[in-house]
Nucleic acid binder design. Structure first.
Lengths: 210, 210
DNA sequence: GAAGATTGATTGTTCAATCTTG
DNA sequence: CAAGATTGAACAATCAATCTTC
């Protein structure tokens, strides 16, 4: 029974485990007590976090292929197709054929989903202010930087090439450090570029994330 | 095309979103590229992360009720029961009736699962050394502290009382700051106390985490 | 023929109901 | 009858196969 101690001498391994544990716990609690809870408070229609993610994606990019949706949601094409279908039946998404390519799809929000999204954002903002009011922005900035550097390092080291980054979860980011540090492409960005290039609609989501 | 800036006026909300995004991304990447990947490298039997979690729990606490297993895994009792059943069929767990209370269950590892766990731990340690070799332990310590304080604050603020903490994921912690800061109980700890009290076995897992 | 989306079969999850022991 | 564990029905995820449009 060796494999007892810590990483190098002693302590290091325990420290790293603590660090990883802290990051995991924070992520889990945020998802549960901030995101999902805000969603519940947004009231009305019961919607899962993964469904919200889809709605948010649509509001931000006017997504036009199921594959992109799937990648951003982190699920299979099949699952994305079914998820979209369900939201359409719930009247939270509008689905129309692509204009230039009839294989692809154009998704847009409906009034109810716009309201839902806005209510969620408001509830979330309230919670975040309560929680983060007492922390130093500088500390947060610094910590975020460290986390990003670690993420980047893991990706550099460990992930086989040719894969896009799709770890954003619900946090689509204009300025993604992973992207910058690793040169890895991200489907959110990828889609924004593509849909930007063909200026079919102004689309102006304008409500999220400000 | 605005949607660039941030929270209240400018900056704060964007910063917090970035921070939360960084934490989420790190957690996701660690799960994918460290934990799951180490598990794949451990080779032999294909086991999911959630199954590993169960094995690890057993190795650390000699778990004795399905409900505890369920809570720590973060799934329902039904799912836990089925998961245990499957691992038993795969010969990775031994299940016997409780000694004092025949309703409950006593779980223990088998030789193959012991080997699997050890291989996983070794692969994981290798990866962690590669990844974290270049970071300052002090920065990690400090960041972990900040993360913990934020988690604790969210729990204080947002979570309805009477719930246990079960957010550890795969990171069972002897010294959980959430527990200390919030007084909230944790099932891992809870079980350790209980099983410590009835000294039925030395059990000495002793191999994990030290 | 290849890219996109959908459908069918399997697996894993939940909730509700049931069975067993205390 | 309460606490524990299991079983059955319903729902979402996956992979493989299919259908449609380019």
């Amino acid at each position: 029974m060796e494999m007892t101690q810590g990483m190098s001498e002693h302590g290091a391994s325990g420290l790293i485990d603590d660090f990883l544990g802290s990051a995991h716990v924070l992520a889990a609690i945020v998802a549960d007590a901030i995101e999902a809870e805000s969603l519940r408070e947004a009231g009305g229609i019961p919607v899962t976090l993964s469904q919200l993610k889809l709605l948010k994606l649509v509001s931000m990019t006017e997504a036009q292929t199921i594959s992109d949706v799937a990648a951003v949601l982190g699920v299979s094409n099949a699952a994305a197709s079914k998820a979209v279908d369900k939201l359409v039946r719930m009247m939270l998404l509008r689905r129309s054929e692509g204009e230039t390519d009839r294989r692809s799809i154009h998704l847009s929000l409906t009034e109810p989903s716009r309201r839902l999204l806005a209510a969620y954002q408001a509830a979330r903002l309230r919670k975040l202010e309560q929680v983060f009011g007492s922390f130093e922005l500088n500390d947060l900035r610094q910590a975020a930087q460290l986390l990003d550097r670690i993420s980047a390092r893991i990706v550099e080291q460990g992930v086989r090439e040719g894969q896009m980054c799709l770890q954003c979860g619900i946090y689509f980011r204009e300025k993604c450090v992973l992207r910058e540090l690793t040169g890895r492409q991200c489907l959110f960005q990828h889609h924004k570029e593509r849909s930007g290039r063909r200026g079919s609609e102004p689309a102006a989501p304008a409500d999220m994330r400000k």
